[in-house]
Amino acid sequence: MAAVDMTGVRKKDANVSDLVFKYMRPEHLPHIWCPGCGNGIIMRDVAQAIENLKIDRNNLVVVSGIGCSSRAAGYFDCSTIHTTHGRAIAFATGIKVARPELEVIVITGDGDASAIGGNHLIHAARRNIGLTVIVMNNSIYGMTGGQYSPTTPTGDYGTTAPYGNIDRPFDVALLAAGAGATYAAHATVYHVPQAIKLIQDGIAHKGFSIIEVADVCPTYYGRKNKKGSAVDMMRNQKENFVTAAQAHRTCRSRKPGKRP
């Protein structure tokens, strides 16, 4: 592991990959997330996308709100700001408008982005401001212990939906697209190379971009809904997620259970 001395110089030992050492703060790792949580995978996807685009960390700001996803900001080695619940996009808007030359990435969750922060999401999309929003969508409020969120599928369980969720879920990327986002994508934690490419293209895109990553939360969402282990949940992604083009075809053939 790496340690930081008083002058801030980070020392590397043999157990950190070059990518993690370069873009994260290994002295704060391992992260706080549960075993099997997909958030760490998404964080690495973002680091790889930054590496591929050769973005200078000194010009990079990562902004987050509150919830499991929000802890991601602090693990990146750049200017990072962990803000208040739902408000990450509003803080990020201030940073980007004040200093347009900075690359600003927002890391948020399904509750943070589409419930308490839904208004900021649609208006940032409408303004087409140059932010990249990564949504770690685990379909549940994890930090508070498993309450249903705006992306919990109808009928699924949460601690506040003991008889099943009666609401319909948001498709966050489509929501943003409907509000005017000029780049919107779906990704999963299983399909890593595709996710990296989608995030990379989102960051490179001039204007508002959103990448909604289907996450796995084995601890709360998985357990409450008998989805099995993290491995089972990832297998489910492997088997049931299709490309947008395939989705178009399955839509017409009405093949059940497949998601874009």
Binding site: R87, F91, T93, G94, V97, A98, L102, H120
Partner: peptide, 26 residues
């Protein structure tokens, strides 16, 4: 300078704080 009309009061203060982190008086 920069002016922005935000979508609500909460966004307004959040946006101003965000700008201030870059050294701009907000």
């Amino acid at each position: 300078g920069k002016f922005i009309q935000m979508e609500d009061e909460i966004a307004s203060i959040a946006c101003a704080i965000g700008a201030s982190t870059t050294g701009v008086k907000a």
